[in-house]
Design a protein around this nucleic acid. Structure first.
Lengths: 123, 123
DNA sequence: CGGGATCCTCACAGATACTG
DNA sequence: CAGTATCTGTGAGGATCCCG
């Protein structure tokens, strides 16, 4: 289980940090941002994010489902069809995470400039 | 370089994702939250966060400094004294990240409940 | 005290193959 | 199509030593 990048089944970790880490995990962030737009099917989501292995996407979705942020709707048809969407809790988190994503886009050039200054200052 | 949990010097990565990943990186999140309260000295910050190795804290701070989010003020005294604070850019990011932290605290019990339901549902 | 340089290790994450 | 299972490397991250 656990998609978390660290200390997955961390014992001596306050659970608060754990949730925060699931939400801010590499793929967790991107999944929340995408699902904030609209529901997605598995492969569709995979393509939308890009460069995610099936395994990691599955793990991420399971972790977020377990935390009650993502709703999984598996239809018993052939071929299988599974839709993922956000729960109310997930929408709240997604809003905050998306805000971060937006901020990043807006401030990218400032960051790039800062980097050039920083790198330049050390010959 | 790079504190990021993933793909650190990612080549084929859009820089937008890179910044997002620095900000949402394991220790990056916690550093921003702490520095959002007030400036800290290195060891002080280390204690405030808890369970961070010196190495990781150093790396994280360097990455954030390079991105122009953190200001480093090294006083040339003995023993050395280095103060860290947020830049304007950093404050903006910290606000968003802190919001996530606050949300996590507030919604923790819902998450915990969701987990119990999820785990219970699979015997 | 702040942090650079090394070494080591484990678990994250990818690739592949198989199933319903 | 949507997963699960297994196998493996690679690098994040911790520990330790050292130096200004």
């Amino acid at each position: 289980m656990a998609v978390s990048k660290w200390n997955v089944e961390g014992e001596a970790m306050c659970p608060r940090r754990l949730v925060l880490e699931h939400v801010t995990s590499r793929w967790g962030v991107l999944v929340l941002i995408e699902l904030n737009e609209r529901p997605y099917r598995f492969s569709e989501l995979r393509r939308a994010i890009g460069r995610v292995s099936e395994k990691m996407l599955t793990q991420t979705l399971q972790t977020l489902e377990r935390d009650g942020l993502v709703h999984r709707d598996a239809k018993p048809v052939i071929p299988p069809r599974v839709d993922y969407s956000l729960t109310e809790l997930g929408r709240e988190a997604a809003l905050l995470v998306s805000a971060l994503g937006t901020w990043t886009e807006e401030r990218m050039d400032d960051v790039v400039k800062a980097r050039e200054t920083y790198d330049g200052a050390r010959t």
